[in-house]
Amino acid sequence: MSDAEHTPGDAGNSSGTGGGPRRPYRPGLISGEMWSAFGTLLAGTGFWGLVGYGIDRVTGIGTVFLPVGVVVGMGAALYLVIYRAMRRQ
């Protein structure tokens, strides 16, 4: 393969690190992964925040579980984003 035929995604294919060949470069791929990570963080935080809010409303304690739900949701979503990023390498 000549230098003109290489794509940015081909860099380092022969490094011998294992894991098979890298995915070919596609324009917009990085942007799509970024929006996917942003959506995961937003959805996890929102969902568990709403769960915490619901628990607060049912128990009548006040705003105790809402912040707990937001923190748990952000942590779980961040874990998922990092897990997916590590699997793509």
Rank of each mutant, 00 (worst) to 15 (best):
R88Y: 08
M86Q: 08
G52T: 10
G12M: 12
S15V: 13
W35D: 03
R57K: 06
D3W: 10
S14V: 11
M86A: 09
P8A: 11
G73F: 01
V51Y: 04
I30W: 13
A11M: 10
I30M: 14
T40L: 03
A77Y: 02
T63K: 02
V68A: 11
M1N: 10
P21A: 13
P24H: 11
A43S: 10
V58M: 05
F47V: 12
R22V: 06
T63G: 02
L66M: 05
S2P: 15
P67K: 05
G18P: 05
G69A: 04
W35M: 12
E5N: 12
L50V: 01
A76K: 00
G18C: 08
P27A: 14
L80H: 03
P27G: 11
E33Y: 15
R84H: 12
G62Q: 00
G75C: 05
G44T: 04
D3Q: 14
G44W: 05
V81R: 07
V51R: 01
L41N: 05
G12W: 12
G54Q: 03
L78Q: 06
P67R: 07
T63Y: 00
S14W: 13
W35A: 08
N13E: 14
G75V: 02
V51I: 15
F38V: 14
Y83C: 02
M1C: 09
G18Y: 07
A37V: 13
G73E: 00
R26C: 05
L78E: 07
D10T: 15
R87A: 13
T59A: 02
G54Y: 02
R87Y: 03
P67D: 08
I61S: 06
G12A: 13
V58R: 07
G69K: 00
Q89V: 14
Y79C: 01
W48V: 02
Q89C: 08
I55R: 04
Y25T: 11
A11W: 13
G54P: 03
V71T: 11
R22D: 15
G19P: 11
V70C: 09
P8D: 13
V68K: 01
N13R: 15
D10R: 11
G73R: 06
G75W: 02
A85I: 13
